[in-house]
Every structure is written in structure tokens, then in C-alpha cells.
Design a protein around this nucleic acid. Structure first.
Lengths: 150, 150
DNA sequence: GTAACACCTAAACCTAACTTTATGTCAAGG
DNA sequence: CCTTGACATAAAGTTAGGTTTAGGTGTTAC
């Protein structure tokens, strides 16, 4: 059993955030001792899941729904599974988008490195859009690939 | 040269958003004909870059700074390069975090699939935290890996 | 016995990135 | 001529996810 201050330390989260999460219903059935919150292992595990779900882009109200399902019992297994399946698809799509973004960033790093060496962008402009060095061309093409023809 | 309505169509962005971007200084030096915005190829390219930079997590004010650097000329190449280098590092870190999140999601999908088959979580609880099937164990371990011991 | 702490609540405040609203200009069509 | 539609502005409103503030309680340290 931990106090809110201890949990704040453990997770590196402000106390105000933990209270906000509680107010939003993210710790259903958390114990209290004369008004003071008692975080048990169940709440710590909940917090770990909250951090993951937040990273995956879930909103607070959806996390609250998930926590409510957990309390409700075995009848909500399919709902919980569906939630994770949906998230998985979204995160997979996000990874692909992020890889594209990363290729754009790598290209831009090379671009400005070259511009700095040349002192201008003339040579670069002459290479664009399809006479770049092969490895750079790959980055450029991936970064500029349209989603339409997936 | 395009009107704001045409650009809105082309990029699938609301007109209000384009006007907002303009107000925030994301199209420095955009032409006007008797008050009406004229989007040239330069603004379209800017918009493409804006979309990428937004995806990479950059804020509007930083994008504005970048656009200002572009207008300023060759003396700002190092600033622009530094911006992209920083972004690159951040996105790379994000990819790793997202992979961890994805492993957690995959684990949870398996978890609830199993719970549905069993009708309860008893067998699952008995397997946790280190007697899971090997491939699942890998997901679980990666998802629960602490950042502290990187 | 009082000061320092750690906890509590309700409610106001904050920020980013838009969106909506209210009001107005201007050109073309019936 | 007058309505429709696309453009314009300034300013207010919205939403999520917190954070801050103001005021109060309860326990331990000196």
C-alpha cells in the first residue's frame, strides 16, 4: 500500500495528475483510509497500463471505460480484446507513418548538410526530384510517397 | 496560383485551418490580390513540409521559425539542419517507445484471446510473470522493460 | 502548542491548435 | 437589383489533459 506521494515518486508523475486520473475514474474501487488514497498493487498495475494506453493514443475517457470493464468481470473479455485489436492496428499504421516522417527528416539532414558544404542550394535543386544519390533518393521517395497508392 | 478553397480541397484541410496557418505566419510573403490570398507552388510546398513537421511533433511556432529561416537565406542553413537533427533523434526515440507499446498491445490481444477461451484469467495469472509461451514472453518482457537500464 | 508536512477538495486557470460566429466585401447569374 | 457563393476579418468558443490556487484536515517533531 502506497500513498499518493510515494506513487508520484515511483512513476515520476505529479501528484496533481494522479488525483486528476482518480477523479476521471481511472482507479475504480481504490481504497481510502479516512479520506486518504491508498494505492495498492492493483492501482500500480493500472497506472502501468494507463501509461501504455496513453502512449498508444487512447483518450482518458476510453481508458476509464477499459478500467470499468476490468471491474465488470469475464463478460467483458471480448470488449477488452476488441479495444486492444483496434489500438494495435492504429499503432501499426502510426509506425509506418512515423517511418516515412523519419525518412523525410533524414533526407532533410542530408539536404542541409550538403547546402552548408555548397553554400547554396543550386546543386541540390538540380538533383531534385530524381537525380539524388541512390541511398538519399530512397529516403526522398519514401518520404514523398503518397498514401493514395498504398 | 490557387485560391484558399482550391487548396483546401487539394490538401483535405478546412479553410479555417489554412487561414489560421497564415495568421500564425506559416506562409511568409504569400501574395494577395485585393485582399484575397493567392497560394503559389511555394505555399503548396510549404504546406507539404508543414504536414511532415507536424507529424514529427513540431509545434506551430517552431514551424513558423523554420519558414522564417527559409526566407532569411543561406546563413540559416545550420539552424535548419540542427532543427532536423533534433527532430530525427526525437522521432527515433518515439519509434522505440512505440515498438514497446505495440508489443504490449500484441501481448494484451493474446491475453484476452486466451482469457476468452478459458472463460477466466486463472491459468494466465499462473503463467505470469515468467512462465508464458516463449514468443509471448518476449512481447511481455519487451513491453515491461524499464527505460532505466537502457 | 505550534510549526512543518503530507494529505484532501472544489474550482479556476492554462495551452495548443483549431473552429465558430458575427459581420462585411465583391463578382456573377437570373 | 438582389441573391448566392466565395472570399475576408476579428474575436470568442472549444477540447483535452492537465496544473494551480485557495482553503482545510490530521500527524509528527521540537
Amino acid at each position: 500500500m502506497y500513498t499518493i506521494g510515494q506513487v508520484s515518486e515511483m512513476f515520476g508523475l505529479p501528484i496533481s495528475t494522479l488525483r486528476y486520473y482518480d477523479k476521471e475514474g481511472l482507479f475504480p474501487g481504490m481504497e481510502r483510509q479516512s479520506g486518504i488514497r491508498k494505492f495498492s498493487d492493483r492501482e500500480l498495475e493500472a497506472l502501468r497500463i494507463i501509461e501504455c494506453l496513453k502512449l498508444s493514443g487512447l483518450e482518458i475517457k476510453d481508458i476509464k471505460q477499459f478500467m470499468a470493464w476490468c471491474v465488470e468481470g469475464a463478460s467483458t473479455y471480448p470488449d477488452r480484446k476488441a479495444l486492444f485489436e483496434t489500438r494495435k492496428k492504429i499503432v501499426e499504421a502510426e509506425m509506418i507513418a512515423l517511418q516515412k516522417t523519419l525518412d523525410m527528416l533524414k533526407f532533410k539532414c542530408w539536404y542541409y548538410e550538403t547546402a552548408i558544404r555548397d553554400g547554396n542550394e543550386d546543386r541540390l535543386n538540380a538533383m531534385l526530384p530524381d537525380k539524388l544519390p541512390p541511398d538519399i533518393q530512397k529516403l526522398y521517395d519514401n518520404a514523398h510517397a503518397s498514401e493514395k497508392r498504398k
